Amino acid sequence: MATNIRVEKVCQYCQKEFIAKTLKTRYCSKICNSRAYKAKLREKKLKEAKSGVVEDKTTTLPHPVESNLNVIQGKSVLTVEEVSKLLSLSKPTVYRLIKEGKIKATKVSERNTRIHRSEIDKLFTS
């Protein structure tokens, strides 16, 4: 939808006259638009600093390991991945402990290995 509207306007940033092709155009170029935007952000930051009210943009989220540990600690049967998170070990290390017989595990299927929580407790008592 082409338009033949030509309106003489004054750029709100550099105050130069220009011919706008739409009625909403406020700046003579992309450069003036970008500079005006940055100036607006700068003014906002200065205003916040002067008033002493600065938005805290950082939100503290629970660490993924910490939130998972609460769930893991309530289970009686764990996966190898859960055991590795609980003990802060790598998965290969947990598999090595199973192979050495230090942790007893049950293979539910070829790809699913489960470990009783009591086996983890026995690891530290013996």
Rank of each mutant, 00 (worst) to 15 (best):
K24W: 03
V80R: 01
L87I: 12
E43S: 14
E66Y: 09
S109V: 06
R35G: 00
C14S: 08
I98T: 02
K99P: 00
K24A: 11
A49S: 06
K45T: 12
Q12N: 05
L86F: 06
N112Q: 04
Q12V: 09
K16Y: 10
M1P: 00
R117Q: 12
K38A: 12
N68Q: 14
T60I: 13
L86R: 03
S67C: 06
N70M: 11
E100T: 03
D56N: 15
D121M: 07
L97H: 05
S88Y: 11
P64T: 11
F18L: 11
E100C: 00
C14T: 11
K16L: 14
V108F: 03
E17K: 08
H116M: 10
L23E: 07
E81K: 13
I72P: 03
N68E: 15
S29V: 09
T113K: 01
K91Y: 06
Y95Q: 03
G101R: 07
T3H: 02
H116S: 06
V108E: 03
S29G: 04
K91F: 06
H116W: 08
N68W: 08
C11E: 06
K91H: 04
E100G: 00
K104S: 02
V7M: 02
T60S: 05
R96E: 13
V53N: 12
V83W: 03
R96Q: 13
T113W: 06
K21P: 00
L86D: 01
R96P: 00
Y95T: 02
Y37V: 09
N33S: 07
V94T: 06
S34G: 00
I5P: 00
V108C: 03
Q12I: 08
Y27I: 08
T60C: 01
C28V: 11
L61Y: 15
G74S: 12
K104R: 02
P92H: 09
T106Q: 08
S76K: 13
C11T: 08
V65L: 03
C28N: 07
V10H: 01
P62S: 14
S76A: 11
K104E: 05
E110G: 06
N70Q: 12
K107D: 08
S126D: 05
V53K: 15
I115L: 02
I31M: 04
T59I: 15
S76M: 13
K44R: 15
T113H: 02
K85D: 03
S84T: 12
L86C: 04
E17L: 13
